[in-house]
Design a protein around this nucleic acid. Structure first.
Length: 961
RNA sequence: GCCGGGGUGGCGGAAUUGGCAGACGCGCUGGACUCAGGAUCCAGUGGGGCUUAGACCCCGUGUGGGUUCGAAUCCCACCCCCGGCACCA
């Protein structure tokens, strides 16, 4: 029997050991075997919970492994310490944000220590310290000097609760990323970083990054590159109106034009009698929140401004509208509308009675024709049938479906049967109206008008209808053919009619360029990064406004622009602190005012990975020589929630600093791993809000009012009260148990629910592990760990083989992309089970036993460092675990064993044959041995053997008849 | 709607990438220990079948088809789930 496992006693012995011994201190000058491992630094809010633990425990395990593999590992930690929660504490509770932050940082550090998670603390940084934000400001100045930071008036997202503007990236779905409040639009003068200058490169360089595919996809979508053409339309008055389109092949189908309500030409072009209406619409559009504007079910709105534009390809006069579905911030803020081939334009045209002209043949080549009862003479159905047309006859109304190739033949036939004052239509590649005396095509706005006129003249019911499209829309049968946005042969398109769909866009662009009407163009969805925040707790933007000199950057020597120390922080940030605002101009020395906005905290975090290399250098932000050797970061680990924000900004800053000559690489993070969140049930009572899970009893409702609770399993968060604190758990089971369970729960990239039962599984295992090893260590303590594998008993050979397999499986997970430590730990558990079984079966070979115990301790040590260090000490090998090399795997060990070869007969496993390793590994020997085996012969009696497939070392498959 | 990732026991998930499906753990069932246990230990645990209860047979990795001696894994079609984006012209 071994000793009882007492984790608290063991862990208290080792908590400071690794740090004190300096194992986690990187040698920054030695870049030969460097490995830069980085966890995203946290925002130190309140106390960490077991969900935080996942990130750092994973990183700690990887770091310990790398150290044992002999790498010079840099794994630093710091604090993303500026931000709104701290400031809100200050405003509401009068605590200085720095004090609040410092307190939380201490709490995090204590937790890391309890977890056994160690960092190179000499490199600790906090973005809120002047020594750090001085250099954040320095980066701002460099960008400003090089035209990458600018101030502009723009329509911005504003969050009324956070009382500040937000970057595009932080207004998720029209709501504030932090507090979920619907964002308002405001026109303000703000500071921007010109990230769009790098749009193409940010997109292109994704290709080579070893990042999860979904993160790359998200960035690609966010950058949103589209190719097309800019085409110059003109107003009737002669103003050029350039539109961007990805479908220049549909140009001949433009039947109207839409400008964004804020478009500068609106003012000029609006007809006097439309002015009032247009003004009102502009106000309506401005008033809406982003959420309202984006809401999917929203009907199209817009107004005609009383002006017309001329389509440069065919000279057609088309009305100009304004509508909020056209955004000033994308493309040119103006579009040509082709309702036949754009879903939004189609909806708009149908609603406002604007003509639709088809200009692209739908691929597939099917057309439809509806021949209403009473419009044709007797005999048409028979004639159609005879001519081989497919149709349905419902009460005398005919619904014909035909191939485009039969169109002419069909038209001739129908026409010969039409009553004089009637018509029918053929809808497919173009719309044709068949009258008894003529056939009319809807190939232009003019033709559309004529067709409609003629129909209205013939049929009083049609007089209510505004367009041919509306007329056709009323026939359910046609609906699926009236609009499509696929590529197809161009029709009704003047000189380009007949151009096939696969080259239509390209040919049209060539055609436009030859005539100087338009040219190839690329547009991006990405907008410039708005970095101004009207808050106190951030890095001040180092700019001064002087009446004489204008906008003046603070000289580098005057950095940092310090945050003023004030009694109490108010709602209006720096702008309400006169001592800060009023200053002198660095250029002329006259009175001037400081910029009062601080920078978005994502600016702070967009370069911190550079600072870790020389965190205390007070002469420069980073040491370029060393940074160029240590970066890119070899492995960056963090939550997927930063997939676009932080990761895109960091990439941009890196590229900008490279172009300014400070770096010689363009991507900060060579490899990225995103770990999933830990979830836990959260309970909601409509009256008492969030209820902590510990207070919720099975089957009973709210502990306060008994009302039924709404349960959702979501990421742990303090605000939902569904956090599990590590303290209690470590007191009960120890940190090793928490670590082991956290890594064993499931693949780390996936979200997973925390379970106390699961945790106890890890606890049980460590107890068994401890008891087993402490029981046997005294027997092998003074042994050598040497043995002759060939001389082992059969059971011992099996154990030795299993051991080597285990080393292989555990190592593989560290070396793989996925860090599947759930599998690695499972392998260790399996081996422990096998070891226990072996020890219960026979008197062990002590050399073998010492060897496997020794390596088993090392193998589990990245996951459970405390128990490992303690067992290592008792084994008496000397030194510390982290000074040992990682166990190696011996291929030969597996060859000692007999192999069990499954035998498939007609695809089913019918027998297993035990064979020596050599026999099983040789194709001919394997084949013969299996066919000779009694348990196989049994199945072959009276059957004909058709085929034998022998896979050496794997299996044998027989086909019999 | 578009893009990305997935569907394997009651649950989390394994399966060395085309070769014994369900490792390991949780849960569950039975038993032991116990005044008691939600602690611990032992055994069983995909579903079904059985005049031979076994070293047995059949079914089984979302659905339907295909390739192959052999498919969770490859191909085609479909269904469903998760994540992201979404009036971006």
């Amino acid at each position: 029997m071994g000793e009882p496992y007492n984790p608290n006693e063991i862990e208290s012995r080792w908590k400071d050991f690794w740090r004190e011994r300096g194992f986690f201190k990187a040698d920054i000058q030695d870049t030969e075997h460097k490995f830069y491992y980085l966890n995203m630094f946290p925002y130190p809010s309140a106390k960490p919970h077991v969900g935080h633990g996942r990130n750092y425990i994973l990183g700690d395990a990887i770091t310990r492994y790398l150290l044992m593999r002999g790498y010079n590992v840099l794994n630093p930690m710091g604090w993303d310490a500026f931000g709104l929660p701290a400031e809100n504490q200050a405003i509401h509770h009068g605590i200085h944000p720095r004090d609040w932050t410092v307190r939380n940082i201490a709490e995090f550090k204590r937790q890391f220590r309890d977890w056994g998670v160690v960092f190179d603390w000499d490199r600790e940084i906090a973005t809120c310290e002047p020594e750090y934000y001085k250099w954040t400001q320095w980066i701002f100045l460099k960008l400003y000097e090089n035209g990458l930071a600018y101030r502009a008036e723009a329509e911005v997202n504003y969050c009324p609760i956070c009382d500040t503007v937000l970057a595009n990236e932080q207004a998720v779905g029209g709501r504030c990323e932090r507090c979920n409040t619907p964002v308002e639009k405001k026109t303000l003068t703000q500071w921007f970083f010109k990230i769009t200058a790098y749009a193409e490169e940010l997109l292109r360089d994704l290709e080579a990054l070893d990042w999860p595919e979904h993160v790359k996809t998200m960035q690609r979508n966010w950058i949103g590159r589209s190719e097309g053409a800019n085409v110059a339309f003109r107003s009737e008055q002669g103003d050029e109106i350039v539109v961007f389109t990805t479908r220049p092949d549909t140009l001949w189908g433009a039947t109207f034009m839409v400008l964004a309500p804020e478009h500068p030409l609106v003012e000029k072009l609006t007809a006097p009698d439309k002015r009032a209406e247009v003004e009102e619409y502009k106000k309506f559009a401005a008033r809406q929140t982003e959420v309202e504007r984006l809401s999917a079910e929203k009907e199209k709105t817009g107004v005609f401004i009383g002006a017309y534009a001329v389509n440069p390809v065919n000279g057609e006069r088309i009305p100009i509208w304004i509508a909020d579905y056209v955004l000033m911030t994308y493309g040119t803020g103006a579009i040509m509308a082709v309702p036949a081939h754009d879903a939004r334009d189609f909806e708009f045209a149908l609603k406002f009675g604007i003509p639709v002209v088809p200009v692209i043949a739908p691929p597939g080549g099917t057309a439809k024709s509806y021949v209403m009862k009473g419009t044709y003479r007797e005999g048409l159905p028979g004639a159609l049938r005879e001519a081989g047309f497919e149709f349905a006859d419902e009460d005398g109304s005919l619904y014909v479906t035909l191939r485009e190739g039969d169109r002419a033949r069909y038209i001739a036939l129908v026409q010969s049967y039409l009553e004089p004052d009637s018509w029918s239509e053929v809808i497919g590649a173009g719309w044709q109206f068949v009258f008894s005396d003529s056939v009319m095509n809807v190939g232009s706005i003019a033709e559309e008008r004529k067709v409609l006129e003629r129909c209205q003249a013939l049929e009083p019911d049609v007089r209510e209808v505004h367009t041919v499209a509306e007329l056709l829309w009323n026939v359910e049968f046609y609906r699926d053919l009236l609009f499509h946005d696929r590529y197809g042969t161009m029709i009704n398109s003047g000189p380009l009619t007949g151009t096939p769909g696969d080259v239509a866009v390209e040919r049209t662009i060539e055609w436009l360029e030859e005539r100087g009407i338009g040219k190839f163009a690329v547009n991006y969805r990405l907008r410039d990064w708005l970095i101004s925040r009207q808050r106190y707790w951030g890095a001040p933007i180092p700019i001064v406004y002087c009446d004489e000199c204008g906008t003046v950057p603070v000289p580098e020597k005057d950095l940092p622009v310090l945050l003023p120390e004030v009694e109490r922080i108010g709602l209006k940030g720096l702008s309400e602190i006169p001592e800060f605002v009023n200053t002198t101009c660095p250029q002329c020395g006259g009175p001037a005012k400081r910029e009062t906005d601080t920078m978005d905290t994502f600016v702070d975090s967009s370069w911190y990975y550079l600072r870790y290399i020389s965190p205390h250098d007070d002469r420069r932000p980073f040491d370029s020589d060393l940074v160029n050797k240590w970066l890119p970061v070899d492995l960056y680990v963090g939550g997927v929630e930063h997939a676009i924000l932080h990761l895109l900004y960091s990439r941009f800053i890196t590229k900008a600093l490279r172009d300014l000559g400070y770096l010689d690489f363009g991507e900060p993070f060579a490899r990225l791993f995103t770990q999933g969140m830990i979830t836990y049930p959260a309970y909601w009572c409509p009256e008492h809000r969030w209820i902590p899970p510990q207070e919720v009893a099975e089957g009973r409702g709210c502990p306060h009012c008994g009302r039924e609770l709404e349960v959702s399993v979501v990421a742990m968060s303090k605000s939902k009260l569904n956090v599990v604190s590590p303290d209690e758990l470590i007191g009960k089971y120890g940190a090793d148990t928490e670590r082991l369970y956290t890594l064993f729960m499931g693949p780390p990239e996936k979200e997973i629910e925390w379970s106390e039962e699961g945790l106890r599984g890890a606890w049980r295992f460590l107890n068994r592990f401890w008891e087993l090893l402490t029981a046997w260590i005294p027997r092998v303590k003074d042994g050598s760990g040497e043995f002759d594998p060939a001389a082992l008993s059969e059971a011992a050979k099996r154990l030795w083989a299993k051991f080597n397999e285990t080393v292989h499986r555990v190592t593989r997970e560290f070396e793989s992309k996925r860090f599947g430590f759930n599998v690695a730990i499972a392998a260790i558990m399996e081996f422990t089970n096998a070891l226990e079984e072996y020890l219960g079966r026979e008197e062990p070979d002590l050399g073998l036993l010492r060897r496997v115990i020794r390596d088993l301790i090392l193998l589990i040590s990245p996951f459970t460092p405390f128990i490992s260090e303690e067992l290592w000490l008792r084994l008496g090998e000397g030194g510390a675990v982290l000074e040992q090399g990682w166990p190696t795997y011996d291929e030969e060990a597996l060859k000692l064993l007999a192999v069990e070869i499954p035998v498939q007969i007609n695809g089913k496993v019918r027998a297993r044959v035990r064979l020596p390793h050599d026999t099983a590994g040789d194709i001919e020997a394997l084949r013969e041995a299996v066919l000779a085996a009694e348990e196989v012969q049994r199945y072959l009696r009276g059957k004909e053997l058709v085929k034998v497939i022998a896979v050496p070392g794997k299996l044998v498959s027989l086909v019999v008849k």
